[in-house]
Design a protein around this nucleic acid. Structure first.
Length: 583
DNA sequence: GCCGTTTTCGGCCCGACTGTTTTCAGTCG
């Protein structure tokens, strides 16, 4: 029973209580417990044994008892009671955008809907009509939401899959005879979601490795076992599992197997065409001429024998990569990132202080960071009123005085409001070093309106970056409609960077859009939007996305020095861009 | 359900958007 499991149980109780229409503050108290437990650094068992549970914020005697009960018995009486009263299938409906606890409770009470299947049937039969609060538009939104959920089912976000692959890799490495373990498939290519994990390992005797692999802890179900491969289901998080395949290959054909299982399929087909032209075959066993193995040990040898450059996995999508004379040596990489220009601290909704974020960034080898709290309209995220922002800037300057080896820019993530204005006046923005402007409200507007709001923000001389431009949350919420070409053109014209938000729920701009931006000549910037120090490591996912867009160092603003970033800001303020003339 | 140097009872976090119930409830961040 991990901290995350306990947090999940309390969140589920909160949700079930919501369906019952319980007191909102009692429900809030359960959520508070869940949050405290989820953010707890120490193991809950340790804290419990020390008798310190009830000292944690938001955890009183009642919750401490419940946590004890959960840790010792693995069950909660309250959870079971609620499950008897409220259909658990309703929990899934909370994932449907526009459906919250009140509306779901209504669906249950008035129409007997107890599950996603019931809901779909009700939509199809038209039995939702006439229900209070469900007009034609609302029903349409629910229908779209259900379709969206079905479309995203089965796909696992890159960051979640990466975490699982790391656990599998470490576990497989401990098995006797295993020399090394590698990720392949869509995960290695850095795709934003993956259907399953393809892992490869090197061992001379495969059978015992597979026998032990399928018995590793955390494996939910064994799907298939062969002589040199096994396939299992693993829990990614509660309610979502993923298929993991492990193949064992000998060292001497590892490169061929790695290439083959990395894909994608279209890229491999092209490569096999090149082999066929020479009268050779290419498979997971190697590049082969008759009975002679031409290359198999490394990927580099295989590409080289086919007279094409070795292609980085992120570029293997059959987008013309095999026609390149050479792959750019300065394809963007984590090592080349010099700063991170979008992050939050405890001043708004982050978990760490200015100093903690800056020190963590310094430890990651960065030269600079920018602290960008939410603006005043994002009240729930602790957005700062103007006077508080000025005070915060002073705090940043004070921390800077105490800290060497890292430059701390003072910025903001200012909201782009529904009327396309910004959430702070220009006089205030002018006092900052760097400004990220983002849309958080009014995500339902049409393309014309979204584009107009984004362009208006770029026309402000103090806005240096558009944060997560399409607002999507992978597997949870679609992108807003946005005229990406118009946005890119204006980004170039105004000298505004477009963000690749590296948070693996966002990856926004996505790879294709980032490539469009690059083709327009726009500056991209890869930021983590970190709300805690460990989230700074998500830079990796943003860089994978950038590499999928073929971005090179000079396309990415934060591969440059702090001084050059300062120039980028100064240049826009000097030019004071105006909206382009109509027509 | 939690919490307290105003309180052991009576407060708890805010603001905007959307659709529709036409004066506001439900959802979202």
């Amino acid at each position: 029973m991990t901290n995350a499991d306990v947090a999940r149980a309390f969140n589920e109780i909160a949700n079930l209580l919501e369906f019952k229409g319980e007191d909102a503050f009692r429900i809030g108290a359960y959520r508070r417990v869940a949050r405290t437990v989820a953010e707890l650094q120490d193991d809950l068992k340790t804290v419990t044994d020390r008798g310190e549970l009830a000292t944690l914020p938001g955890i009183g005697d009642a919750s401490a008892d419940r946590i004890q009960e959960l840790l010792t018995t693995g069950r909660l009486a309250l959870r079971a009671e609620l499950a008897a009263e409220v259909p658990e299938g309703l929990l899934r409906l909370l994932d449907v955008p526009t459906l919250g606890p009140k509306k779901i409770a209504l669906l249950w009470r008035e129409r007997g809907i107890r599950s996603m299947e019931d809901l779909k049937a009700a939509i199809d039969n038209g039995t939702l009509a006439g229900l209070k609060g469900f007009g034609a538009k609302s029903i349409e939104h629910v229908q779209r939401g259900v379709e969206f959920l079905e479309h995203s089912a089965g796909l696992t976000r890159l960051g979640d899959a990466w975490r699982v692959s790391t656990q599998i890799r470490e576990a497989v490495l401990t098995l006797p005879g295993v020399q090394h373990v590698a990720r392949s498939g869509a995960l290695r290519r850095g795709c934003e979601t993956v259907r399953g994990l393809d892992m490869l390992c090197v061992a001379e005797d495969p059978a015992p490795v597979i026998r032990q692999f399928v018995k590793l802890p955390g494996i939910k179900q064994v799907l298939a076992v062969g002589n040199s491969w096994g396939s299992v289901m693993v829990d990614v998080y509660s309610g979502h599992s993923m298929q993991v395949a492990l193949r064992v290959v000998p060292e001497k054909t590892f490169g061929a197997a790695w290439q083959y299982f990395t894909g994608n399929g279209a890229h491999n087909s092209r490569l096999r065409e090149l082999a066929a032209r020479r009268g050779w075959t290419l498979s997971e066993h190697g590049l082969i001429s008759g009975k002679r193995v031409i290359a198999a040990r490394t990927e580099e040898e295989i590409y080289s024998e086919l007279n094409v450059p070795w292609i980085p996995p992120e570029m293997r999508e059959d987008n013309g990569e095999l026609s390149l004379d050479e792959v750019p040596a300065d394809l963007v990489s984590v090592e080349r990132m010099r700063g991170d220009m979008h992050m939050h601290t405890v001043a708004s909704d982050g978990r760490n202080t200015i100093e903690e974020m800056a020190v963590a960034a310094r430890e990651r080898g960065y030269q600079y960071v920018c602290i960008t709290e939410h603006s005043q309209s994002s009240a729930i995220a602790g957005g700062l009123k103007p006077e508080r922002l000025l005070q915060h800037v002073a705090e940043i300057r004070a921390v800077q005085k105490q800290l060497e080896g890292i430059i701390i820019f003072a910025g903001t993530e200012v909201d782009i409001l529904s009327d396309a204005s910004l959430d702070y006046p220009d006089e205030l923005l002018a006092q900052l070093d760097f400004v990220v402007a983002s849309i958080h409200f009014g995500l339902g507007y049409d393309m014309e309106s979204n584009t107009r709001r984004t362009l208006a923000a770029m026309h402000n001389p103090f806005v240096n970056c558009i944060g997560h431009p399409t607002g999507r949350l992978i597997n949870e919420r679609d992108s807003i409609p946005l005229d990406i070409n118009a946005v890119c053109r204006e980004a170039v014209r105004t000298g505004t960077a477009l963000e690749i938000n590296a948070n693996y729920y966002r990856l926004d701009l996505r790879d294709q859009h980032a490539r469009v931006a690059r083709d327009h000549g726009a500056s991209l910037i890869i930021n983590t939007d970190a709300h805690a120090v460990e989230q700074l490591d998500q830079m990796h996912f943003g860089v994978l996305t950038a590499r999928r867009a073929w971005l090179r160092d000079h396309d990415v603003l934060n591969t440059r020095t702090a001084k050059e970033v300062g120039h980028f800001v100064a240049l826009k303020r000097m030019k004071r861009p105006q909206p382009a003339a109509a027509g």
